[in-house]
Write a protein that binds this DNA or RNA. Structure first.
Length: 429
RNA sequence: GGAGAGGUGGCAGAGUGGUCGAAUGCACUCGCUUGGAAAGCGAGCAGACGUGAAAGCGUCUCGGGAGUUCGAAUCUCCCCCUCUCCGCCA
């Protein structure tokens, strides 16, 4: 959510950010108009209430309360009526009132882009900031991971479809073990870098979902239970970020770094026909998510560190990847700046997204009310929130299968995983 | 699912209709005291919004919402959460 105060102080900055994203900046003028209306209604309502409070206090102070009440009655009744009307108007206009036009405009506005975000309307304008590793030169035609996985007997899509339909998978034997090894490896790494491991709920309330900016924009993309009004998380970013909602954290406890290994659930409604084969896009997948709560002045550095933390995992796994700064038109709703990590997929001879590392600045913190206090006297300020996967299990597993496949159809296990796997390769049979 | 108890400031804990955003204690901040510290003493110490250059002023908030009343932390209703006991269960 955007700060009305910012729109008031610097509307041009907000317009510019919207334009860079390719969005219509007209909402800014609408916000300014509604905000003006709201504040004048609020002032009127509050001064009427002040008058009424003054009269009520007089009754309280009077020696003969009943007599005083009788005397002031007509005036109080008249005030009460007026206050009711004014308050009705305030509610209709309030930015805090769900459903009010002002609230809707503010809630739907995208985060302000960081100045360093490259210009551009779509993914073609994303900028590669660095890359690591060479795509392996295979002496044979690489198999896509779904074929490889089925031949090795570690992936079974037919039976997954029998159980749950399309976009589900079953991992078997060494495949399931490899998934577990990855989770363990990622979590161990996170811990060594000072992340606190968290095992959070994967079902969260509507308020929680809203507070991290997943609603109402992405409501269609989520699985939910209507009776309980609970949502299955599309990413652990949601519980990890919202965990400190409504709290004021003391500055010396920042940054807070959390890592969680959880399943994630996505309907992928907008992706019909896309990546229908294999495990690249499933309704249910697992990942280790990294979340930072940081002081505002440190969040730019924090994004660099978070991104490097995720990159390092790929380097240790010896998977070629590149890091891409998303251009203005490609940065998501919540984020001010995003780096995507893309890894090499031999079967499609292309880089595919594996991790998105974002600085959401105060955008989620404002919705969730996550604040920090610098010292006893200081006013609370909003923290900045950051998130990135480090890393998703399925897509990493896919990359290992494809990049480490051998001419004989077996798959080598990256050295760092061998202790976790207690094996050096996966072979058929 | 059944029965009961309870939700007040960072924490503990008063407050059952009137000047209460809220006693007191602890914690915390600043000052005095001290060679330094502890203790002691004094002052301060919730958040949001509006207004203002600021000091300040105003409004709202005692789990959430609705109501009664001139006036609600206090009374009524609904909801949520926590705890205890019972049942069921991974």
């Amino acid at each position: 959510m955007l700060d009305v105060g910012l729109i008031r102080r610097d509307p041009e900055r907000v317009r510019l950010s919207a334009k860079r994203r390719g969005l219509d900046p007209a909402f800014v003028d609408e916000v300014l108009r509604l905000d003006e209306e709201y504040r004048s209604a609020l002032t009127a309502a509050e001064s009427a209430q002040a008058e009424k409070n003054r009269l009520s206090a007089e009754i309280g102070k009077a020696a003969d309360k009943a007599a005083a009440a009788r005397e002031l009655r007509p005036k109080l009744d008249e005030l009460s009526g007026r206050i009711e009307e004014l308050e009705q108007r305030v509610r209709e206009l309030s930015p805090a009132e769900r459903g009010s036009p002002l609230h809707e405009l503010l809630a739907q506005a995208h985060n302000i882009l960081d100045d360093s975000v490259p210009e551009g309307n779509d993914a073609s304008k994303n900028v590669v900031v660095r890359s690591w590793g060479e795509p392996p030169k295979l002496s044979f035609e690489p198999l896509p991971h779904w074929e490889l996985g089925e031949r090795l007997g570690i992936l079974d899509f037919a039976r997954a479809a029998k159980l749950s339909g399309s976009r589900f998978s079953i991992l078997l034997g060494p495949g399931a073990r490899l998934a577990r090894a990855l989770a363990q490896f990622f979590l161990d790494r996170a811990q060594s870098k000072g992340y606190i491991e968290v095992n959070p709920p994967v079902l969260v309330s509507r308020d929680t979902m809203w507070s991290t900016g997943q609603l109402s924009k992405f409501a269609d993309a989520m699985f939910r239970d209507d009776d309980a009004d609970l949502f299955l998380i599309p990413t652990a970013e949601v519980p990890l970020t919202a965990m400190h909602g409504g709290e004021i954290l003391s500055a010396d406890t920042l940054p807070r770094k959390y890592a969680a290994f959880t399943p994630c659930f996505r309907k992928e409604a907008g992706a019909a026909g896309k990546d229908t084969r294999g495990i690249i896009r499933l309704h249910q997948f697992e990942k280790v998510e990294l979340v930072w709560l940081s002081a505002p002045e440190s969040s730019a550095d924090a994004l660099e560190t978070l991104t490097r933390d995720a990159e390092e995992l790929l380097r240790d796994l010896e998977i070629p990847y590149r890091t891409v700064a998303l251009c203005a038109g490609d940065v998501g709703f919540n984020a001010a700046k995003t780096y995507d990590l893309e890894l090499w997929v031999p079967s499609s001879q292309s880089y595919r997204e594996i991790s998105s590392c974002s600085n959401c600045t105060d955008f989620q913190a404002r919705r969730a009310s996550i604040r920090l206090r610098r010292d006893a006297k200081a006013k609370p300020e909003l923290v900045h929130t950051l998130n990135g996967s480090g890393l998703p299990i399925g897509r990493t597993l896919l990359a290992i299968l494809e990049n480490f496949q051998q001419a004989d159809g077996s798959v080598k296990i990256p050295a760092v995983l061998q202790p976790y796997m207690r094996a050096e390769r996966i072979s058929a049979g």
